[in-house]
Design a binder for these strands. Structure first.
Length: 858
RNA sequence: GUGGGUGUGGCGGAAUGGUAGACGCACCGGACUUAAAAUCCGUUGGGACAUAGUCCUGUGGGGGUUCGAGUCCCCCCACCCGCACCA
């Protein structure tokens, strides 16, 4: 065996070894209700959908979380770091249809495979807490929660329209509707009304909005996205009496945020789906045609036609309650039925869209807002939608827009023509899905008693195994016996609900279940009281709105029903960037996998054929573009530590990272270099810590302790790429400082040991390997405390100070730290004497230990 | 359209208002080797000149505040993301 072979780190042997050691020592196991007095820390990454294989996004996500978990553990926290599976969803049903596989078998096989891949990465997870949302033990508890929500008045049943595929006889999610057609059948999608279950998330709209302010460790942009989604607005409802009643309707109610501009009215517009529009259409073919046109325009050519504002004059008129004037009623394509009241009053001078509409149909444009009373402009094509002063508006004239709003609302309320209201964009959460592979909704429908809760002793309502995917539609509907049950109320024959829950429900409380995953109740209060909220949640930005909002709502609902004791589930949130890769095509435009491509200085060619390759954009890894790299292959070739180190090293975690082969090789080289260095240092003479250090040894020790401080700081701020850079620097310095004085030997040993401990959260396996060589009796590095920097060694004894003249660097001086200003200035002046010659010094700036700046004049 | 974000060498990026480019990748040069791989050492923002050195310039563009700006303020440009007719 040659030298190089003995000093080569064999990850394929070491990684499984240390993983077994951690498991044997139970390093990562947490208790539901801990007894010790260590502070708790709950680290959670968004759990994966078991598609079958892990991808690089998972590697990055779980590495980030694992670094936090291991770091916090070393800092003395009692860490909860669990893993599970978001296992319900459409892909399993698709697999069932395509491969005649049983969705459960397919899902559990995928889980088994992915569990193995995750374990190879060496994540410090408490696998004893693992569960899948498709386990009856989990979704049965979810059914209990639903029934508690129902009892608490948080559940409603009402009609809602769905996308219906008439060929597949199935309901489609919005993403499955492509250009108005079903993605699978290609049939034109119909709107169909179904009775559905809703969770009343709107009841919580105010607190979900206000709660955002308490989330100090959330990214600002995620909070903003949630804020916009919840969409709070303050305004007024105004009742406009119709000049003549239509189909029994005597007035139109409008929602506005600008009641101050009511005197600037020019027209009233209603949505094509508005009841009055429908009533008009029954007698007016033109109106009916216009409405039909608007409906068909809906999804298809939205992009092209959005800018075009179109309307249809109904001939009806309404009376403005403030001035008694009559205004025409239009049906307009830009008014939305599901926002506000489905009707607006048009004030062209204060709203760009209303102005566009008024100009198009030659409607009057009264001016009611002006920059000031003396400066009333002409309105051209640009509306005055900012703040200003109200003019030409009766009792509101002369008030600022801010003053006029409450004044207008007060008047509306006084004359009974309207009231101030708060409006929300957020709508209730429809949770019924006409699917098999989801959590059954625990309800029984009885013709006499109505919908009844499934009694507790009959939970969980389990999915039947013997279903057929041969016929289109929901297999639960076709099952011969499953839905046939007796009513729990009257005992007569009844029907079991065949809808299942939206899978977003499964992921809205799993973090609470992880605290006591085997409990007979959804949660155990002592456990959730201890562990919640999650201290650090890590996941993709793509879940910034729906998942995070649903989880926040669910937590509040769970708190209301006594299942948890917190209102917010995630105290800290980190959103990571995507993993990207170059994409490749052959000359025929077919995508190629990276492993099919060889790159050289001359360009890229195909490995097998030598044919040219077109190198495309750097894009998010996706199967369709074939620009994926299989983590399994990387781990097999370079080891888990290399993969972990690479995804941490290249750039800040919140940004996208580009996966490059050369970057991975760089990471691999470092693993080997670190190992060789540690081996070398471990073989050197052991010495006690010297009483004093000087010279090179002192410099190295200072660098070591500065590195501790810098890496600690980087860990706290998710600046893992900076931590990596600092560790490169430290190992470089240790290997550069050769010699065999006691001082230096100690400094080298200390540097190597600290490097092992600082590197451990990021590359746990090689850290164990080298720590074991350096400190054979100290046990696992995974349970070592985090190193502390010696404050004495953080103090620099010499500093290099920049010397500027008029703010430009002209030289540097090296002086003892804390040197008095007079001496520093003397030395500085000397070093830039040639530049100062012939100049008059006007001012001398001295920032201790940092900089000297001479301000001079000729 | 609107809200948010980003813009620094060939690339990823670093930099409490204080020496811009840490660290890595790539490239180039050297050492070791019969050779290659691996490893180690070194150079590398751009430009000019009298080339062991000196100077100029440089963080998307333009202004400003400051002794001093990548960093703070104002305007503009480009790109990315979210929501998109929200009354």
């Amino acid at each position: 065996m040659s030298d190089t072979e003995t000093t080569r780190y064999d990850f394929s042997q070491a990684e499984p070894h240390w993983q077994a050691q951690w498991e044997a020592a139970g390093c990562f196991v947490a208790l539901d209700v801990p007894t010790g007095d260590r502070p708790k820390y709950y680290v959670l990454e968004m759990f994966p959908y078991p598609s079958g294989k892990i991808h690089m996004g998972h590697v990055r996500n779980y590495t980030l979380g694992d670094v936090v978990a291991r770091y916090k553990r070393a800092q003395g926290f009692d860490v909860l770091h669990p893993m599970g599976w978001d296992a319900f969803g459409l892909p399993a049903e698709n697999a069932a249809r395509e491969n005649k596989a049983d969705p459960a078998d397919w899902t559990y096989a995928n889980i088994a495979n992915m569990r193995g891949e995750l374990k190879r990465m060496g994540f410090s997870l408490d696998w004893a807490r693992e569960f899948a949302t498709c386990d009856p033990e989990y979704y049965g508890q979810q059914q209990k929660i639903f029934l508690d929500f129902w009892q608490a008045g948080l559940v409603e049943r009402r009609a809602a329209s769905v996308n219906w595929d008439p060929v597949d006889m199935t309901v489609l999610a919005n993403e499955q509707v492509i250009d108005g057609r079903g993605w699978r059948s290609g049939a034109l999608v119909e709107k169909k009304k179904l009775s559905q279950w809703f969770l009343k998330i709107t009841d919580f709209a105010p607190e979900l909005l206000e709660g955002l302010d308490t989330l100090e460790r959330w990214p600002e942009r995620v909070k903003l996205m949630q804020e916009n989604w919840i969409g709070y607005s303050q305004g007024a409802e105004v009742i406009f009496p119709l000049a003549e009643a239509v189909a029994g309707l005597e007035s139109v109610t409008v929602y506005t945020t600008r009641p101050d501009t009511l005197f600037g009215m020019s027209f009233l517009a209603i949505a094509p789906e508005h009841p009055i529009a429908k009533a008009v259409a029954e007698q007016n073919a033109g109106a009916a045609g216009f409405i039909a046109e608007c409906a068909s325009q809906g999804t298809s050519e939205a992009a092209i036609e959005t800018a075009e504002k179109r309307g249809f004059a109904t001939g009806l008129e309404v009376v403005n309650p403030f001035n008694g004037v009559k205004y025409p009623v239009w049906i307009a394509n830009f008014v939305l039925m599901d926002y506000g009241t489905g009707a607006i009053f048009g004030c062209p001078c204060g709203d760009q869209r209303d102005l566009d509409f008024a100009r198009k149909y030659a409607l009057p444009v009264p001016v009611v807002v002006a920059p000031s009373v003396d400066d009333v402009p002409e309105i051209g094509v640009k509306a005055l939608d900012g703040d200003g002063v109200i003019v030409n508006s009766g009792f509101l004239s002369g008030l600022t827009t801010a003053e006029a709003k409450p004044a207008a609302i007060a008047e509306l309320e006084k004359i009974g023509a309207g009231k101030g209201v708060t409006n929300w964009r957020l709508r209730d959460w429809g949770i019924s899905r006409q699917r098999y592979w989801g959590c059954p909704i625990p309800v029984i429908h009885c013709d006499d008693c109505g919908p009844q809760a499934v009694p507790q002793d009959q939970l969980p309502v389990e999915l039947p195994k013997d279903v057929s995917f041969e016929t289109p539609g929901n297999p639960l509907d076709h099952h011969p016996t499953w839905s046939k049950v007796n009513c729990p109320g009257c005992g007569r024959p009844a029907r079991r609900e065949t809808d299942t829950f939206d899978t977003f429900i499964d992921s809205s409380w799993y973090f609470a279940r992880f605290c006591s995953p085997r409990a007979e109740s959804p949660t155990v209060l002592d456990a959730v009281k201890h562990w919640l909220p999650v201290d650090q949640y890590v996941g993709g930005i793509e879940h910034a709105i729906l998942h995070l909002l649903y989880a926040r709502f669910f937590t509040r609902a769970l708190e209301k029903t006594g299942h948890v004791t917190v209102k917010e589930p995630f105290a800290g949130l980190f959103t990571q960037g995507m993993v990207t890769h170059e994409s490749y095509k052959d000359e025929g435009g077919n995508w190629l996998y990276p492993e099919q491509v060889v790159k050289s200085a001359e360009g890229a060619t195909q490995r097998d054929t030598g044919l040219p390759v077109v190198v495309g954009r750097i894009e998010k890894m996706s199967k369709s573009k074939r620009n994926t790299v299989d983590p399994g292959a990387i781990v097999g070739k370079y080891g888990a530590d290399t993969a972990r180190w690479f995804v941490l090293s290249d750039n800040p975690p919140e940004r996208d990272v580009e996966w490059t082969e050369s970057g991975v090789q760089g990471a691999y080289r470092f693993v080997q270099r670190l190992y060789r260095l540690a081996l070398l240092v471990a073989g050197e003479r052991r010495v006690e810590q010297p009483v004093a250090v000087s010279g090179e040894a002192k410099k190295l020790r200072q660098l070591t302790h500065r590195t501790i401080a810098a890496v600690t700081e980087a860990m706290e701020t998710f600046a893992f790429n900076v931590a990596v850079a600092k560790l490169y620097e430290l190992t470089g310095a240790v290997s550069g400082a050769a010699g065999d004085t006691d001082e230096l030997l100690f400094a080298r040993f200390e540097g190597a040991e600290i490097a092992a401990r600082l590197v451990a959260p990021m590359m746990p396996h090689v850290a164990e390997e080298i720590f074991a060589r350096l400190r054979p009796d100290a046990g696992l590095v995974a349970v070592q405390p985090w190193p502390k920097a010696d404050p004495v060694l953080l103090v620099q004894d010499e500093v290099t100070i920049a010397v500027q003249v008029n703010g430009k660097l002209r030289g540097t001086i090296t002086v003892p730290a804390g040197q008095a200003a007079g001496l520093v200035l003397l030395a500085a002046e000397a070093v830039v004497a040639s530049v100062l010659a012939g100049q008059t010094i006007v001012k001398k700036i001295h920032v201790p230990d940092r900089i000297v700046n001479f301000v001079v004049k000729p």
